[in-house]
Amino acid sequence: MANKQRNILLFSLLGLGFIVLFFINISFGSINIPLKEVYKSLTGGQASKSTWEYIIINYRMPKAITAVLVGMGLSISGLLMQTLFRNPLAGPYVLGLSSGASLGVAIVILGAALMPPFLATFLVSSYGIVLASSLGSFAVLLAVLTVSHRLRDTMAILIVGLMFGSLTSSIVGTLTYFSTAEQLQKFTFWSLGNLGNLSWTAISILSSCVLIGLVLSLISVKPLNSLLLGENYAKSLGMNYKKARLIIIFATSILAGSITAFAGPVAFIGLAVPHIAKLVFQTSNHTILFWGTILFGALIMLICDSISQLPGSDITLPINAVTSIFGAPIVIWLLIRKRKMMN
């Protein structure tokens, strides 16, 4: 089929684009390192300046890898939610998962002073933050799911997500009132979203979580496809609905939760990227969408991160600012263009 050839071409282009952007992302920053040198030091050779090599290995590489993980993970969690909720506007940020994760992190960072010291040290460590944030997003997802089961109206689900968002942010607000300036600063920086500053240990935790989430999503491809016909048809097609839904929910929360724990709440990627993949590949088949979404997610996050560095200057924009500027118009455009598909 002509479709098959088109898909192969698209995947090759995306793969190529991914490699090129990965190098460009590493080369751009407050100091621009020539692409040739990036290539040299990444392939095991020596860069001309040892400072360049130091920057690449300790700062640029971890950040680029984080961007890739964040892009892939958030986009896939968005794809899962859009199919699970039968709602094209679902996403980890919109449905309040990111706020749930924020609440978890806020309780840990801001509330640490109120807890016994041994618990506080564990909680403020990377593991504790991941755990708190995953639990937070899991709780919100469960709550939204429970409510959505009674509502069955797609718009109402979004409003419920929004309400959970403001509920959690008001609790976070209350917590900040009682916390020290230092804790507050730590939390504020976290909440702006940041792909840098991750140690290699943190990256290994993050990548294991993202890997688990992606594998769970991959085994959910078939149930996701049958869910395109709605719950009852899916069941009639032999899908074990309860089990499949649990796996999908678990995958979504571990992806959104772990990423939010390390990179802060990153807006719009989870919502916009699956739509871009659906639009480009012109399909709803999750076997194709899975890989398409992963590649687009990584690609777009690398672009956003490169822009946020404002190449050649010392300033770094918060990653959230860039993803929102990029994501919000896409959502509006999608709504207008795909009105028929939406209702």
Partner: peptide
């Protein structure tokens, strides 16, 4: 089965 319910939005 063939049901009366509406299909959710998708690109199928």
């Amino acid at each position: 089965v063939v049901l009366t319910e509406k299909l959710p939005p998708s690109n199928l």
